[in-house]
Design a protein around this nucleic acid. Sequence first.
DNA 1: CTTGTTTTATGATTTTAATCATAAATTAGA
DNA 2: TCTAATTTATGATTAAAATCATAAAACAAG
Lengths: 198, 198
Amino acid sequence: MITVDLLQKYGALKKSFGKNEIIFEEGNLPSHYYQVISGEVKMSNYNDDGREFIQGIFYKDQSFGEPPLFLNQNYPANAIAVDDSEILLLTKNNFMKLLEENPAVSIKIIENLAQRLYYKSVMAAEMSTQEPEHRVLKLMDHGIAYFNFKKDENGYLINFTRQQIGDLTGLRVETVIRTIKALEKKGILKIINRKVYR
Amino acid sequence: MITVDLLQKYGALKKSFGKNEIIFEEGNLPSHYYQVISGEVKMSNYNDDGREFIQGIFYKDQSFGEPPLFLNQNYPANAIAVDDSEILLLTKNNFMKLLEENPAVSIKIIENLAQRLYYKSVMAAEMSTQEPEHRVLKLMDHGIAYFNFKKDENGYLINFTRQQIGDLTGLRVETVIRTIKALEKKGILKIINRKVYR
DNA sequence: CTTGTTTTATGATTTTAATCATAAATTAGA
DNA sequence: TCTAATTTATGATTAAAATCATAAAACAAG
């Protein structure tokens, strides 16, 4: 999103997080801007009885956790490294200074937030009114355009576990497994030794 | 959000919409920035069998429909006047020029998008993992902070119909009615001649 | 003031995904 | 390389909200 050079010019520091390490927690006040250098980060909530909902997954060059930073509100979710990851951290004050002095970056931030809001809008409508097959397909098709799914001779490889798909769509693993099977039977996607292609 | 003066300086025009009139439709390409002067606007989707999901409701001074404008993508939902409403329209080109020439406005836009993303994040987690009582309460408590609910001697008046609450939370009217009754019985909210207070 | 529409309400029934139970296959870790 | 943990899988059962049916109350429009 923002070039590493520019971030470092304003004092951003690289920090490493091990697999499953917590980057920040729901309820805390934001203090930094975060941008992924390498690895994979998920933002998610856990409800009263431990069930997870994944808000989003972030890869190289993507930033996360800005909304509460701009609003002086607590984080609505946790950020956790899915794999060993390197993250650039810039303090709030320095980040705000960077924005003031680089108006072009503001436009970038706007576009990024707009993209994420667009995704949330589409998924919210899906999750509230559509049946499982519809939800799962929508997530996959969004992922093709937005996450780094790679195409090979079988189509796009949906690089999520059934559990992750469930946590992103609000469905249970068993339901996701059955739904994917049903979609395969209808010829809408392919399953080649347990991997899903679209 | 943006002052009327500034918008008009860039050529924004006032347009009136009657109750239930469509402002823009899902699938169309955005051409303008929209800001409410008076009245009430809802953005919503209709699924395959006509069921509605309300993305958001917008009142005086609030803007809507910007994300796809920034992304050159089609609208993911419809915008409809809930009451007779007056809206300021600014063409995309002029809006972009306004942003370039007024960096402080960019920050305002960022804050606004951040606020909406925050709401969507919270509601997405609620809708996917929580039971009806939890969802309905979360919506109401958000509404108190964000929509223009007014406080009187009975508490905050939840100025939504049961149907609207259902369309915002992904629940059916009957379920909302029963849920609200259950919450009243528990003393979590009040119902005074059919109106809900929190 | 009458009529039509929307909103709130309640009971009975159905449907669908969640839950529960169990296990094979695969992957990760020590 | 052996073991533990995760992922995929499938069948049976349950629970919870959706659906269906029906109606009274409130409101809006003419």
